[in-house]
Simulated scan of single mutants.
Amino acid sequence: MRKLYTANHLLEAYIVRDLLENAYIPVRLFNEYAQGGTGEIPFTHTYPEVWVVRDPDFERGQEIIAAYERAPQVTDSVLCPQCGEENPGSFQLCWQCGGGLELAGDKSRNR
């Protein structure tokens, strides 16, 4: 077992864990509940860590994480053509009415 990734926060550790598990790389998450100890122990010891269970998966895991870190952040939004609600640009369905956002096209995207 090898440490593959140290996350800044627990949500990021969950995202990385899910990416790796979806690629059939079994991982373990350490320090999942350690952030409550901040102040009692050094904060760097409370960062969540993602460890690869099988050493041969380590390099492939590094490639997946590198692709995750290179992926652009989606910060645009799209207006629903049915109800006019603003949704994150990564959504495919409106969170308000469930309408399809792919119909909205580029003309309703806010940048």
Rank of each mutant, 00 (worst) to 15 (best):
Q35A: 13
Q62R: 13
R111Y: 12
G36F: 12
I64N: 13
I65F: 11
P88K: 10
V53Q: 07
L20T: 00
D57E: 09
Y14C: 01
N22C: 01
F58G: 03
R2Y: 04
L79H: 09
A34W: 08
D106K: 05
R54P: 02
T6G: 06
I64G: 13
G99F: 09
R111D: 09
R2N: 10
K107C: 15
W51P: 00
V16C: 01
F43V: 14
Q96F: 05
I25R: 02
P72V: 02
R109H: 07
C94N: 05
D57T: 08
D76R: 04
I64F: 01
V27T: 10
E32V: 07
F58C: 06
L101N: 03
L101P: 03
G84H: 08
Y24S: 13
E69L: 13
R2G: 06
R54S: 08
G61C: 00
G84C: 04
P48D: 06
I15A: 14
N22T: 00
N8F: 12
A71L: 05
L19H: 09
D106W: 02
D106H: 09
V74C: 02
E21W: 04
G36C: 04
Y68T: 11
C83N: 14
M1P: 05
E49C: 06
A66D: 12
G84S: 10
T6Q: 11
E49F: 00
F91M: 15
E21F: 01
L4R: 10
R109W: 09
G36K: 04
E40G: 10
I25A: 00
V52H: 06
V78M: 04
S90Y: 15
V53K: 11
H9T: 07
Y5S: 12
A66K: 03
Q62V: 14
H45Q: 01
G36Y: 03
T75F: 06
A34S: 09
G99V: 07
E69T: 12
D55L: 03
E102Q: 15
T6V: 07
T46R: 11
E102F: 15
P81H: 07
Y14H: 10
V78C: 07
K107Q: 10
Y47W: 10
L93T: 01
D18V: 04
M1L: 06
T44H: 09
S108R: 13
A23Y: 05
A71I: 02
G105D: 00
L19P: 00
M1E: 10
E49R: 12
Q73H: 13
G84T: 10
P72N: 08
N110Q: 13
W95T: 04
H9E: 13
G61A: 08
N8I: 12
L11M: 13
R28D: 05
M1F: 11
Y33M: 08
S108A: 06
L20K: 02
T38I: 14
N31T: 13
A7C: 13
Q92E: 15
A23K: 08
G99H: 11
P81K: 02
D18M: 11
V52W: 04
E69W: 14
R60D: 02
Y33D: 10
Q96N: 15
E32H: 01
H9D: 14
S108T: 12
R111V: 14
W51E: 02
R28M: 08
N8P: 00
E69Q: 14
G98C: 06
C80V: 01
K107N: 09
G98Y: 00
R17M: 14
C97F: 12
E102Y: 15
L11A: 11
L11P: 08
M1Q: 14
S77K: 02
F30V: 11
L79K: 09
V27F: 07
P26G: 02
Q62W: 01
E86R: 10
